[in-house]
Simulated assay, not measured.
Amino acid sequence: MPKPDDRRDNVDKIEYNIGKTIQNMELAEEMIAKTDDENMKQELKEKNNRREAALKGMRKEIRDEAIDKKNGYR
């Protein structure tokens, strides 16, 4: 039997993930500034680009959750 859809803490989870993603982006930027390895710099920049795209998706999710909550969904 599947679990019921409990979305009460979705916003909290998404906000946590946003914070961690931003933290990882900042750490990657620090590593980019410190390393002379061009391959590593490129890989870190590509990761941050993917993280930026993920952040956009997570922010959209939060907006969707807010709309759902406003409309009475839980």
Rank of each mutant, 00 (worst) to 15 (best):
M1R: 12
P2Y: 08
P2L: 14
P2A: 15
K3Y: 07
K3H: 11
P4F: 00
P4L: 05
P4C: 09
P4G: 12
D5C: 07
D5N: 08
D6F: 12
R7F: 09
D9N: 14
N10K: 07
N10Q: 11
V11Y: 00
D12E: 12
D12V: 07
D12H: 07
D12P: 04
E15T: 15
E15A: 11
Y16E: 12
Y16K: 15
Y16C: 10
N17S: 10
I18V: 12
K20Y: 00
K20W: 00
T21A: 14
T21D: 10
I22P: 06
Q23R: 02
Q23I: 03
Q23M: 06
Q23A: 13
Q23H: 04
N24C: 05
N24S: 10
N24W: 02
M25F: 00
M25R: 05
M25E: 09
E26P: 13
E26M: 04
E26R: 13
E26V: 06
L27E: 08
L27V: 10
A28K: 01
E29H: 11
E29S: 10
M31K: 15
A33D: 04
A33M: 06
K34V: 02
K34F: 00
T35Y: 07
D36Y: 01
D36K: 09
D37A: 03
D37K: 00
E38P: 13
N39D: 07
N39I: 01
N39W: 03
K41M: 07
E43D: 05
L44S: 02
L44R: 04
K45Y: 05
E46N: 08
K47G: 10
K47A: 13
N48G: 07
N49S: 14
N49H: 05
N49F: 04
R51D: 02
R51C: 09
E52V: 01
E52Q: 12
A54V: 12
A54Q: 08
A54I: 14
L55G: 03
L55K: 00
K56E: 15
K56R: 09
G57E: 08
G57P: 13
G57A: 03
G57L: 09
M58V: 06
M58I: 01
M58W: 01
R59Q: 14
R59N: 15
R59E: 11
E61G: 08
I62Q: 04
I62C: 05
R63T: 10
R63C: 04
R63F: 09
R63M: 09
R63Q: 14
D64W: 05
D64Q: 13
D64F: 03
E65C: 10
E65H: 11
A66D: 03
A66V: 15
I67V: 14
I67Q: 15
D68K: 13
K69W: 00
K69S: 06
K70E: 09
N71M: 14
N71Q: 15
N71W: 08
G72M: 07
Y73L: 15
Y73F: 13
R74E: 13
